[in-house]
């Protein structure tokens, strides 16, 4: 029986491994970093399963394929089905109207309804509520996947994959640039803060002219604040401007965030193709699955299903590039 070698234990690799195992295939995983951790960009993700919100600035497959993610993850890790709240400062209300025009799956709500959903948001008179969206803790999700895979007998090799593998599935993200020349890195910066004084129970997005700013509750007063999008491939550190903008967003949501402790600063590069959509590409004997961009947790399930379709049944789903040599 074929043993599939998954290269890379980020969200793409683990999702592919999990999907293959669920279909009865045998897999093993290679990653020199070992188990999921800060060396992979999916460690720094927001973990929002928000296809309708993302569709505001993304192409149609993100909306359609993203909707499969919530149930896929629910079978594997804890998810929170509490929807997403989108708000804007008074001066940015045109942006809220624009956001509403570009997507659907929401109801328009007023300040009173906002306070009903999130009692500690009282500065906002209008918002959009996407009740079918969900979120998860991305680190817990990765660890859960890794644990389940091990329980299913999958071996994790803490080393580079050998060069000439048959049946390899390369999920190395930006490291796969040595083979995927049209892959680029898009810098993202995020913060993890602790602020027990404020209680928010669902992801809240604050519209901003240049980036989607959001805050995702991680429980116990911990929040993830994200995320910038910069066409840069320098992931060495966060800039003061980015940190100011992230913290200002939290402060605008509730001034009590001014007292938050900063627990972590995350900076990494999202792997992306020119249209910012993921691809499955067969090069020689290796299948590459890459380009999840800012939609790691949202699109990894669809990517994994596409890889499994190709690997096990030779079905070319829509993410499959023309085979290249």
């Amino acid at each position: 029986m074929t043993v599939w070698s998954i290269i890379g234990a980020g969200v793409a690799g683990l999702a592919v491994a999990s999907e293959l195992v669920s279909r009865g295939a045998k897999v093993r995983v290679f990653d020199p970093g070992g188990h999921p951790g800060p060396h992979g960009c999916s460690w720094w993700a927001g973990g929002m399963l928000a296809p309708w919100c993302e569709y505001e600035n993304a192409e149609e497959p993100v909306l359609r394929l993203g909707q499969t993610a919530i149930d896929w993850w629910a079978k594997r890790t804890q998810i929170h089905r509490r929807g997403t709240l989108v708000v804007a400062n008074q001066r940015d209300l045109p942006d809220l109207r624009r956001f509403a025009r570009r997507t659907d799956g929401f109801s328009e709500i007023d300040g009173k309804e906002i306070s009903c959903l999130e009692p500690e948001l009282h500065n906002f008179g209008r918002g959009l509520y996407f009740d079918a969206e969900a979120h998860l803790d991305p680190r817990q999700a990765l660890l859960d996947l890794a644990r389940q895979l091990q329980e299913d007998g999958v071996v994790f090799h803490k080393k580079r994959a050998p060069a000439q593998l048959d049946s390899a599935i390369d999920c190395r993200g930006l490291h796969a640039r040595d083979h995927l020349t049209d892959l680029r890195g898009v810098k993202g910066e995020m913060l993890v803060i602790r602020c027990p004084d404020v209680t928010l129970t669902r992801p809240v997005r604050l519209l901003h002219p240049r980036m989607p700013l959001y805050i995702v509750p991680r429980g116990d007063g911990v929040y993830m604040l994200g995320a910038t999008m910069v066409e840069s491939e320098d992931s060495s550190r966060i800039t003061a401007r980015s940190m100011l903008e992230l913290l200002s967003a939290a402060y605008a949501l509730n001034p009590a965030f001014g007292e938050a402790e900063i627990l972590e600063i995350g900076v990494d590069l999202r792997p992306a193709f020119p249209d910012n959509l993921p691809r499955i590409r067969r090069l020689g004997r290796t299948i590459f699955a890459n380009g999840l961009y800012r939609h790691g947790y949202l699109l990894a399930p669809a990517l994994a299903m596409g890889v499994a379709d190709l690997a096990l049944n030779n079905i070319h789903s829509e993410m499959v590039d023309e085979d290249r040599t």
Binding site: V230, E231, S232, E233, S236
Partner: peptide, 29 residues
Amino acid sequence: PSPAILEQAFRQSGAGVATVSLRREAGAG
């Protein structure tokens, strides 16, 4: 929304000049 859409916009517009910000993309873009 993506570099691919940027390129389509340029092709459709026939724009003679592309302006680009260095500061925001500073570093190794």
